[in-house]
Amino acid sequence: MIRALWTASTGMMAQQTHIDNISNNLANVNTGGFKKSRVEFQDLMYQTIKPAGASTAAGITRPVGEQLGLGVKVAGITKMHTQGSIIQTGNQLDMTIEKDGYFQIQMPDGTTGYTRNGAFTKNNNGEIVTVEGFLLEPGIQIPDDAVEIYVGRDGTVSVQIGNQNQMQELGQITTAKFINPAGLESVGGNIFKETSASGAPQVGIPGEDSFGAIAQGFLEQSNVQLVEEMVNMISAQRAYEINSKAITTGDEMLQTATQLKR
């Protein structure tokens, strides 16, 4: 009965983490380029009372053993890097990557961050930046007299200057992809960082060699599905309740045992 109390408590703690994760997913349902997370559970160690295959006093081999599990734990929280829905904005500096790839962002500490949020703008120098002011890599500067901005599907950025009919090419946006995107570290602001688990970034031209092409005037939305998260929340809540019921039942059994002498 004491074992039941501790086992059920692990279930309650695991489901609390599950609810925390669902809450974060729901909070970011309208966050552009956000990637939802999924909690992975794993059973804990087992207490072997009688091993399978052991011989009985009569010399018979036991076909099954006796093992009691000691609960559950959170093995990890996995980021799901599936593509979110795409909306058309018409903004010349809004971009989305179709399928695989991440925009490269220069962070304040000089390192490179990676994002799927293509809501870009210009700073006071005409450079393409994120809404936080982080520079897009490779850096591209838009002239003050540019009247139209064109971003090709291969990331080529061109502008029309004044009344000139000829387009002026400014540079090319390259994107990065990873062998294991789930291993990327989330640092907030829709930005990921490379880790040893994700592997080194592979940088390439959009639309070539399995790199996703760029679509101008579109934005990728969060890949959170409201109905799915609500179902997960109900399931987690019921699992939390049933584990709490197991603790209550174990307590009642202990109370009954302590009253046997009366």
Rank of each mutant, 00 (worst) to 15 (best):
V131W: 04
A213G: 06
E194A: 10
P143W: 05
G207A: 07
L70T: 15
L26P: 05
R62M: 15
K50T: 15
G84T: 09
D100Y: 07
R238A: 11
V39T: 15
Q237Y: 08
S222G: 06
E185V: 02
M230G: 02
L68F: 11
F192P: 01
G32L: 13
E132Y: 14
R62E: 15
N190F: 05
L5W: 01
W6H: 13
T248G: 06
P206H: 03
A213M: 13
D20M: 09
D154L: 00
Y150F: 11
R38F: 13
K261R: 14
E137N: 11
F211I: 09
A119E: 13
I22H: 00
N91F: 08
K50S: 15
G217V: 11
T48G: 06
G65I: 06
G133W: 04
N123T: 06
Y150A: 12
A215K: 12
G162C: 00
I97Q: 00
N124D: 14
F134Y: 15
A14D: 01
T56H: 10
P206L: 00
F41C: 10
M95I: 12
V131D: 09
I105C: 04
N30P: 04
T258D: 10
E228D: 12
V159F: 02
M230Q: 06
I142L: 08
H81T: 07
N24Q: 11
R38A: 13
Y114K: 01
L136K: 11
I19T: 04
V129P: 07
Q83E: 15
L93A: 08
I242P: 02
D209C: 06
L135G: 09
G84P: 02
T112Y: 03
T112R: 13
T130C: 07
E208N: 07
T17E: 06
E127L: 12
T195G: 11
V159G: 02
I105S: 08
N190W: 02
Y46L: 09
T82L: 10
L93R: 09
Q141N: 12
G11N: 05
G84N: 10
D43W: 10
G118H: 03
T175V: 15
I149E: 01
Q47T: 09
G250S: 12
I87C: 03
A200H: 09
A4M: 03
N232W: 00
I97H: 05
G183K: 01
F103A: 05
I242V: 14
Q216V: 03
K79I: 09
G139T: 15
K99S: 10
Q83S: 14
G171I: 08
V157K: 09
K177C: 02
D209A: 15
V131T: 14
S37M: 11
M45W: 11
L44I: 06
F34G: 03
D94R: 07
E228F: 02
Q15S: 01
M107N: 12
P63F: 10
Q106S: 14
T96L: 07
G71Y: 10
Q225P: 00
T175C: 02
Q166R: 12
S9C: 08
T56P: 02
Q141V: 14
Q168D: 00
A54G: 14
G133H: 04
G113D: 05
D109E: 04
